[in-house]
Design a protein around this nucleic acid. Structure first.
Lengths: 336, 336
DNA sequence: TTGTAAGCGTTATCAT
DNA sequence: ATGATAACGCTTACAA
């Protein structure tokens, strides 16, 4: 037995398909009695409106697409959870796709979602180059998009961002205040605005405290990146007094290698991470890190998107910058 | 300007829409020249076939839906990555939905995906009760489904599972061989087959070695669960010599609490986890854990699903059980 | 090899 | 308040 359609319901009740359709779409005048009857029979027959047909006809889907680079840290999953919560409330379903840090896959994902007529997109870019044109043209064709976490200035769309500069500055300042000098910054993936902002924060913290700016090493966001850099430092005997890493994974990778080689954290090397991961509390020593309001980011992005969907004509892109928190833990504080 | 359609392309070239359609569907006879011309013009016009219309017409989508409980550990993301790889190769797009451990959301997710005419589903159940009937009727209506990780015997579908019993037995055995007695098992969420199997493995390991079976405490899969139980043990002064936890999160939660109270791991309490998480290597001490072949699970599930899609009539459900590995680390081995 | 036209399951505009 | 009917964009017999 195949899908039950509107026709089957209509036939069963000897009414027209329009009447059945109306029973399922509150916006039309319809006799309360017949409506009730129709809904009842529809249920009995196991009829559910086919959203594909509906999409084709109305050109909208009540689906929202979320595209993220990956799920390997809990940052993105938490953001998605926040977004999902708001969207479910409003009757939207959420379709998630991961680009696995490939711009090609990201593009394919977005295309799939658009082709499937999602009503809007929430996107965290995999890279910030090459895609400007694509997203701009997408926005031109009136597809609501909200970017978060990673975004490009040139793309005129709503964005939910984190004040990476400020919190990188705070985090670095924390290390300076603890009395460490010779602080090294391990940057994230280059070409990302957030990488640049965190780096700038690192630099300005030094300037603010009238210190020479510490060394900056291009590292990356993965654990292996941190491990690699730490190993190199050990090999070259260029171990700094403290490290401010661009994210927790990198920080933890480095910490693990240092510990393996007998260095004490923080007594020999202090470490601070970024983007609070669930690991931070549980490493030994526990890791000082900047916490991002993941849930809030997701909720805000969802709200902005719904705004945009509901006010297509008269909508002005806005950028919301959310606040974070520095969680100070053992990895950066020497107990005397 | 709205979407470019097949009509626009047809008009531009003064051919019929069927010809354009054929140019995009290799299976028909069509003049090579016209085909090339059509594809070229289509590209110039920015035409992409509308998958919604295609779905409605062919009743299939080349989309696969994956439904998982959550993304908070890296187990599910890794499985999805494996599945995605196979599916992308075969030209399928992957739509992911998370049920956040709610059977209601899970059901909605599955319905959304089905309504959107995915060609098949890969599902890890949120719960193993109440859903039997639903999935069975879904399978009856000929929708290919492969379950993984969490499945119900009663549902006759293909499954990709892990030999939880065997590896729980090995893990427990490892603790026994290390010389610990008074081993406690913290179980996962009740009502899951995998929970029962791990528990059975724990028990049988004791029997095999002619030991009295250790205490079994119902715990849960979250870090907080482990923390809660550990705290309770401390409060009640019922601290065992070793713990075999149903997963890493729980194990790490417990470990953290014990450490905070000054207990040495493994010298005071040895701990073994399950389902290798990325954290296991990086906790201090590093955590002994059973590693599941996540990537392989995803790939296998995808392959089974494709099989099923391509052989709808003559298909026999099969269950594949994959092998794991016990990674022995510091948390369970006392160095003398 | 190509065109014509019916059909996929809805919604929405007209009539009635 | 309800019914016919033309869209929506595509595939696919059947004709030509």
């Amino acid at each position: 037995m195949k899908h039950v359609t509107i026709k089957d319901v209509a036939k069963k009740l000897n009414v027209s398909i329009s009447t059945v359709s109306r029973a399922f779409n509150d916006k039309y005048d319809i006799n309360e009695e017949t409506k009730k009857l129709i809904l009842k029979t529809a249920k009995e027959l196991g009829y559910r409106p086919n959203p594909i047909a509906r999409k084709l006809s109305q050109q909208r889907s009540f689906n929202i697409g979320i595209v993220v680079p990956e799920f390997s840290t809990n940052f993105f999953p938490e953001v998605m959870l926040g977004a999902q919560q708001i969207l479910h409330e409003k009757g939207y379903q959420v379709l998630i796709m991961q680009s696995n840090y490939s711009w090609e896959i990201e593009r394919k994902n977005v295309e799939t979602l658009v082709d499937n007529m999602v009503d809007g997109l929430i996107v965290s870019l995999t890279s910030e180059i090459d895609n400007n044109e694509y997203y701009t043209s997408l926005l031109k064709s009136d597809i609501p998009i909200v970017f978060f976490n990673r975004a490009v200035d040139e793309i005129k769309a709503s964005k939910v961002l984190f004040d990476d500069y400020k919190w990188a500055l705070f985090a670095t300042e924390h290390l300076i205040v603890q009395g460490y000098n010779d602080i090294v910054h391990l940057t994230g993936t280059i070409n990302l605005t957030l990488t640049k902002n965190r780096q700038r924060g690192f630099e300005d913290a030094h300037k603010k405290h009238k210190r020479p700016v510490g060394k900056i090493i291009s590292c990356g966001f993965k654990m292996e990146d941190g491990e690699r850099i730490a190993q190199k430092m050990i090999d070259n005997n260029t171990i700094p007094r403290a490290i401010f890493a661009a994210n927790d994974s990198c920080a933890i990778g480095a910490m693990t290698v240092f510990k393996k080689h007998g260095y004490q954290i923080p007594n020999d090397i202090a470490i601070v991470g970024f983007t609070e991961s669930s690991l931070a509390k549980h490493t030994a020593p526990s890791l000082t890190s900047v916490e991002q309001p993941t849930h809030d980011i997701g909720q805000t992005a969802a709200k902005l998107l719904l705004d945009q969907i509901n006010n297509k004509g008269i909508f002005v892109p806005q950028t919301i910058i959310l606040n974070g928190r520095l969680n100070i833990r053992e990895s950066s504080v020497i107990i005397k």
